[in-house]
């Protein structure tokens, strides 16, 4: 009985560790097409942890790492709109559901959870795809972020410079997690 319990104990410990993945490559882009000029930026410095078995995922995007083609635009983005000195990163914490952890090939899935941008947290649900290979997991998603939802102001004089919503693409390549 004692042995059995010990065995059970060990097993339960193992399962809680789950199968965690950390990010190997990440690319977050956003795009907003407007009458005067398109606005787009790239960020490759996002960090993320993903648990393949439970589907839990968390990521954190450092706002200042968004790179724009125009340096002045980047300055405005940080200074006037995202207030990145105050709100250093955007985060997501939630769960990916609707996929089979054992099958390979691209599958559709959805993510639900809490998105925090500009200090404002919203419950969101977004569609995406997941592809599990032998030692990698690829997660992609594309969704719209409405600026108003996160109290991000829009310029009033040239209001047409920035659309109401921006299209955000998330592209992660995960590798098995190693404790650093």
């Amino acid at each position: 009985m004692k042995k059995f319990l010990l065995l059970l104990l060990t097993c339960s410990c193992l399962t809680t560790l789950g199968q965690k993945f950390s990010v190997e490559k990440s690319l977050i882009t956003f795009f907003s097409d407007a009458a005067i000029e398109d606005i787009s930026a790239k960020n490759t410095k996002t960090n993320s942890i993903f648990d393949l078995e439970t589907g839990e995922i968390a990521f954190s995007i450092p706002i200042k790492e968004f790179k724009f083609a125009k340096s002045l635009m980047q300055e405005h983005f940080n200074e006037k709109y995202m207030e990145s000195d105050k709100f250093k990163s955007a985060t997501f914490e939630g769960k990916i559901t609707g996929y089979d952890a054992k099958s390979t090939g691209q599958q559709t899935a959805k993510a639900t959870g809490k998105m925090t941008i500009h200090g404002v947290t919203k419950e969101i649900e977004v569609p995406g795809t997941i592809e599990i290979t032998k030692d990698k997991a690829l997660i992609k998603s594309k969704f719209n972020v409405k600026l108003e939802d996160y109290s991000i102001p829009r310029p009033q004089i040239l209001w047409q410079n920035i659309a109401e919503a921006v299209e955000v693409s998330v592209d992660f390549t995960f590798k098995p997690y190693e404790k650093k």
């Binding site: 968390a58 954190s60 650093k180």
Partner: peptide, 11 residues
Amino acid sequence: NDLLKELEKET
């Protein structure tokens, strides 16, 4: 086990 906290520690 808060994944986001773990992430912050790992960053």
